[in-house]
Amino acid sequence: MKDFIKIENLYFQYESSEENENRSYALSGVDLTINKGEFVAIVGHNGCGKSTLAKHLNSIYLPTTGDVTVNGINTKDDDRIFEIRKTVGLVLQNPDNQIVAGIVEEDVAFGCENIGVEQKEIRKRVDNALKAVDMYDYRLHSPDKLSGGQKQRIAIAGIIAMEPECIVLDEPTAMLDPQGRDEVMNTILRLNKEMGITIILITHFMEEAVLAGRVIVMDSGKVLLDGTPKKVFSQVELMKKHRLSVPQATELIYRLRNCGYELPDCVLDEEECVQALEKLLK
């Protein structure tokens, strides 16, 4: 289906306190369409509005002006708010603060219980969700003893159990170690490929953005670039101008290319880079 999530002329301003009345807009004129089944990465500096945007997708924040629609439902429609939240799940940065229950499987069941899923069906969904994030063996554990990556996968399972069409992840790997980061990224990729869930990943790690099918770069509340990773990361100059990094492999090839060597216009990961360099050096 086309136009799964549609963002039109979105402006957002945090409620101002007395001292700073003239707060600038956190989002100023965002227009985006996200199709079903896409894997979209949104990157940008802290304060560029990427997290604020994420929270608009399931009615946590409502636009100051403009509209966000999910499956044709406006997020401002107060009566259908749970319909939206069932469709678009949100995973937050800190894994510790989004786990509600003291036992893994009970936490995963929490969302299903809230939306009134039948008892037998919950059991099935919880087991499937735990298997999908590869945490089934830990279903009876207490979340305290798990690693950050494991906790974050539990949080993802809690969303999957509600059978959403889309999962938005707001910097899910920022607080994790490299191993935890890999675990979470592999899980996300699998969910997108195998279960066809639309993924919107907010991140500041460019190596993660490279894995997406589409990268959106945000700067000062606006969309700066939007396209395939190749298209976005080939704009090394523009990215640098906005003090954004590109993957090291991309930068290396870009600089060598600028010296006049014959190399592809954009590589994204180490394999592509090695392939290109091998041709040049052999």
Partner: peptide
């Protein structure tokens, strides 16, 4: 442990 991407590229080369 994860080595920087550029180090990895050198290793692979």
């Amino acid at each position: 442990l994860k080595v920087p991407q550029v180090t990895k590229i050198m290793m692979m080369l």
